[in-house]
């Protein structure tokens, strides 16, 4: 057999072995590698490369090294899941860099960070002013996580006291023109309903790229043909506007009526409708 055929076979075998080993290592994404992961991966990579190029005189030695470097990390991972002490050694603990808005210089030294490094890490999080930071911590992976001071945090519906409608997860009922029966059933709907809804907006099922149903049973679709404009469902907005209109009508009737009882009835109706509109506003206006 010529030399290159042997190399080919060896490399193919090692390639398959590497695929298997990577599976064995588990499912951590490359962006969250700890230093220990990093070392392991490099060692395994180098061993496989030297083996497949036959740089090691005795192939068995190489395979043994490979076995040690895959089995040990796998073992350490298993142990680290079970025991916190092992975890702290292998994965490091997180290091607090800024606490109560004050930079901890000794901790910075411990993780070998210069002030420039810290500033740059903060800038990556869109923070240009140290003063905005309440707390910052370096994760075991080397990323810096930051908690902003209360006043500098982005506003949420809760901090502004704004009521929000509860919304369940929308279901994707059509993908690439294919109807997802499972999702439809989960919403308590069927194909017949979907066809009717599509007919209402005048769209052929084959033309639908993505179709989603929200918690109120409204269908939102995106078409393959982007030249066709699909009207967005307006039922919710329409219901809200109609409520408001009816409320102001009631007020007008109350003003126009002379009979005291009737006047009271219309005024009361207006009041009820106003309450209804206010309560439903977050749900209907999403």
């Amino acid at each position: 057999m010529p030399e290159w055929v042997i190399t080919l076979l060896r490399s193919t075998g090692l390639f398959l072995l590497a695929l298997f080993l990577v599976r064995l290592m588990g499912k951590r994404s490359t962006s969250s590698l700890t230093f220990f992961d990093f070392v392991t991966v490099i060692v395994i990579g180098v061993i496989i490369a030297t083996l497949s190029l036959n740089l090691i005189p005795n192939g068995i030695n190489g395979l043994v090294t490979l076995a040690v470097w895959t089995i040990f990390p796998a073992l350490v991972y298993l142990l680290s899941i079970k025991y916190k002490a092992v975890r702290d050694i292998v994965h490091y603990k997180e290091t607090v860099l800024i606490n109560h808005g004050k930079i901890l210089e000794d901790k910075l030294m411990k993780v070998r960070y210069t002030p420039e490094d810290l500033l740059s890490a903060l800038r990556k999080k869109n923070i240009f002013n140290i003063d905005n930071v309440e707390f910052a911590v370096m994760e075991p992976t080397g990323d810096v996580s930051v908690l902003l001071k209360k006043g500098k945090q982005p506003i949420t519906a809760k901090t502004t006291g704004m009521p929000v409608g509860m919304e369940s997860v929308p279901q994707t009922v059509m993908l690439d023109g294919i109807i997802m029966d499972e999702a439809l059933t989960a919403m308590g709907l069927n194909r017949q309903w979907l066809h009717t809804e599509l007919e209402k907006v005048g769209v052929a099922p084959e033309n639908v790229f993505i179709g989603q149903v929200d918690s109120g049973g409204q269908l939102y679709i995106d078409l393959f043909d982007d030249a066709v404009i699909v009207p967005a469902p307006k039922t919710k907005e329409l219901a809200y506007v109609t409520l408001r209109k009816a409320q102001s009508d009631c007020e007008a009737y109350a003003l126009a009526t002379i009979d005291q009882d009737t006047k009271g009835m219309f005024a009361n109706s207006a009041k009820i409708l106003l309450e209804v509109a206010n309560e439903l506003e977050p749900w209907l206006k999403q």
């Binding site: 509860m166 369940s168 919403m187 049973g217 039922t235 329409l238 109609t242 409520l243 439903l280 749900w283």
Partner: peptide, 20 residues
């Protein structure tokens, strides 16, 4: 409006929204 709201209530699975 009443019947529209009823339709929404039929579809809505979230208990809080449904009650509302």
């Amino acid at each position: 409006v009443a019947s529209t709201l009823e339709t929404f209530a039929l579809h809505e699975e979230n208990e809080e929204s449904n009650e509302l």
